[in-house]
Design a protein around this nucleic acid. Sequence first.
DNA 1: CTTTTTGTTTGCGCCAGCGCAAAGACGAAA
DNA 2: TTTCGTCTTTGCGCTGGCGCAAACAAAAAG
Lengths: 234, 234
Amino acid sequence: MPVNPIDLRRVHVFEKATDDDLKLLVQRAIERSIEEGEFFFFQGDPATYLYILISGRAKLMQTSKAGQQVNLRTINEWQLFGALGAVREQATYPATAQALESSTALAIESSFLHEMMQTRPQLSFGLMQLMTGYIQEMQARYRELATEKVEQRIARALLRLVATMGVRVEGNAVELTFTRQQLAEISGTTLFTVSRVLSDWEKQAIVETGREKVRILKPHDLVQIAEGLNKKDG
Amino acid sequence: MPVNPIDLRRVHVFEKATDDDLKLLVQRAIERSIEEGEFFFFQGDPATYLYILISGRAKLMQTSKAGQQVNLRTINEWQLFGALGAVREQATYPATAQALESSTALAIESSFLHEMMQTRPQLSFGLMQLMTGYIQEMQARYRELATEKVEQRIARALLRLVATMGVRVEGNAVELTFTRQQLAEISGTTLFTVSRVLSDWEKQAIVETGREKVRILKPHDLVQIAEGLNKKDG
DNA sequence: CTTTTTGTTTGCGCCAGCGCAAAGACGAAA
DNA sequence: TTTCGTCTTTGCGCTGGCGCAAACAAAAAG
């Protein structure tokens, strides 16, 4: 089903675009639907299209020569990804985008956005803001990985996920749908360690766990842990 | 001593700027010289100026609430830093910039560059390219930290430093000037571990070390190590 | 229903790398 | 030269967190 141009306003980068520009974008866009586990693009492919996720969920990940993977971030609805090609000619995607569930995205030619930005500074600023956001997030995550203990990192990962995609259930509990494996990748550890830590927290009634489920009962305690202030009842 | 506008071309972002624009920038710039160990700005300060390092060397670092530090990158001559404020109004610096040696930089008001970018798409693209470069580097470093062993990370850090600031000496050896502590911060480990690893490599004649000096004799061996292919004579 | 697949938990062994301490080496200054 | 401060090395003990294996649990498929 066709996308309403107005909906594109939900994409931060296009917040201040004119109605006409949005219409242009939608006209030039191709809709691509893929199944869970399939790929929008692979690391190393020429970055000819940029994508806007309109339904579903995807992840960006990076692989080293030795074949080891890390998750860079999770993409939710109305988020832009793969936009690098609009900046640098002949760029290749620095990461792989894989659908976490059946997903649909709008694909727009990178060169088209590039052209539009030539005459629309607002668009450039929008994209730059998106980029500075990434830079800051990556810097923060890098610092966390370098200086913090696993427990802190898992806590932080959970809090970040709550902010972007938590679903409020009864009371002030919030529920997340994630496998231990995914959580491990996000927080840079192993599924075993995640499982052990979550079991610990469950004993302390900070969370409730289930298959592919984490329900957060005491967010404040998680914040304490994330900031390294949980000096054993200090 | 005054900066020649033409020299600003050495800054990637200004590569394609007109002579007039460069002149404008220099006119609006303030020269700031600081001593080793002093600061251009602190994390959390309002990002009112952006800087171009014209001599010396500086580092960008980030501190967590708990006071732990990481180095984000080293800034060399003719590199732009602290440019975030030109993108987002009322932004604050997400990192602290400290001089590694006596350094001089041009300070330009963020709002001024912001204004210029309104009418000069080339400038925006230049800045975006800088940003995508950072994003990619941070992503790569994050992956390395998450998946690679210390030895690999130290090797990688050395190779990166060689590329940006290595000084060629006799033969094809390259020399770097860094304390073990700095190398440790860059590669996300401790000065002890760096020392041990370098001693190892010295025994294998891959490097020669001295006080604040690392001379790389066999870069190729380092590349092997960095890529995790040094399976004990595999 | 049964079987298969996918996800989770937990025990156990192990080791890379950290932290400390103490000694050594180098460079600068006097 | 000696002194002083900074940087480096190395031994030693310790532990956080990884990796494997095996059992268990829940969902999906048949």
